[in-house]
């Protein structure tokens, strides 16, 4: 590292750290919805990535509407998109649970295959509607540009925005799960379904809402993703394996575990990417996770659950 001044190394570290953090927010945003669905309900939703894409396309549509018909809306449409993305994904998720998932609760492997089929259908539906090309939403001005405290440090605003949104959403989910009545029901159902039913919790309703909420969160994540990348029919499915590993690695029932594992995976991968090619960094990270999971199958944080 000769030929570099101390401040250059310092800003390199800051940038590297920021890259890791923004990858962390991406992983966490994706994993949050899944942590609720897979962690709390034990349902494998292979179509999770497509719910994300729903949110992203909703944002794109709103941005088209804003640029073409309502220029005054341009500055605020993104805020609206987050809510609309949530609602659309929530409704689709609700319908999917009602028509498909609820019949498969006792057959987790089959729900995996069925949701994979659903993801294929959704991908083709996106392709037929929006075309195979990737589209990107026109961002409002306040999301463009970057924050540069010194000459060598350059932090993009959209990255900061995604981080902020992640923080907010994580907080909201934590509040919902640990402080609301619905969260209480969800946790009770997770820990002991039979007893929850016996004390009068409508577990079927809890399941449906939980699934829909997880999908809705994926929709919000999709809206956030449009600020950092373009959207294509298959962009959601690219991350699905990583996301599942995040949730499994963290310990399926633990929200804190999901956060910790998203953080460590993101930091590990972005640090490794500094030393080797991106693909090797990914291989090494995945293999490390698999290795750790082989030694400690219950993940980082475990919680006792009566199945």
């Amino acid at each position: 590292m000769d030929g570099m001044t101390l401040s250059e190394i310092g800003s390199l570290l800051v940038m590297q750290g920021f890259n890791g953090l923004s990858f962390f927010s991406v992983l966490l945003l994706m994993a949050l919805g899944l942590a609720i669905i897979f962690g709390q309900m034990g349902v494998i939703n292979m179509a999770h990535g497509e719910f994300l894409t729903i949110g992203a396309y909703t944002t794109y549509l709103l941005s088209v509407v804003a640029t073409d018909y309502a220029p005054w809306f341009m500055n605020f449409y993104f805020i609206a998109a987050i809510f609309v993305g949530f609602i659309v994904a929530f409704i689709v998720g609700y319908l999917v649970e009602w028509s498909m998932i609820r019949h498969l609760y006792r057959r987790p492997l089959d729900s995996l295959l069925a949701t994979w089929g659903l993801s294929l259908i959704m991908q083709q539906a996106f392709r037929s509607t929006f075309g195979p090309k990737e589209v990107s939403a026109t961002l409002p001005d306040w999301l463009m540009g970057s924050y540069a405290p010194t000459d060598t440090i350059d932090i993009p605003l959209n990255g900061l925005f995604v981080m902020g949104l992640t923080l907010l959403l994580t907080g909201a989910v934590a509040l919902l799960i640990f402080r609301s009545r619905w969260g209480l029901h969800v946790r009770a159902t997770t820990q002991n379904r039979a007893m929850s039913g016996a004390v009068g919790i409508d577990t079927a309703k809890v399941d449906r809402l939980t699934f829909a909420l997880g999908c809705g969160i994926a929709g919000v994540a999709g809206a956030a993703f449009t600020t950092i990348g373009s959207t294509g029919p298959t962009s959601g499915s690219l991350y699905i394996v990583d996301t599942f590993l995040v949730v499994v690695f963290g310990g399926a029932q633990s929200l804190l575990g999901t956060i910790a594992s998203a953080f460590s995976i993101a930091q590990a991968q972005s640090t490794l990417e500094f030393f080797m090619t991106g693909s090797m960094a990914k291989v090494l990270t995945l293999l490390t996770i698999i290795g750790i999971l082989m030694l400690r199958p219950e993940g980082l944080f475990r919680m006792r659950v009566r199945k």
Partner: peptide, 17 residues
């Protein structure tokens, strides 16, 4: 080619359910 993924996806769901 448009139809194939719909069919494949439908096949997954139908076979399972």
């Amino acid at each position: 080619p448009e139809l194939w993924l719909f069919l494949m996806g439908g096949l997954f769901i139908a076979v399972v359910m």
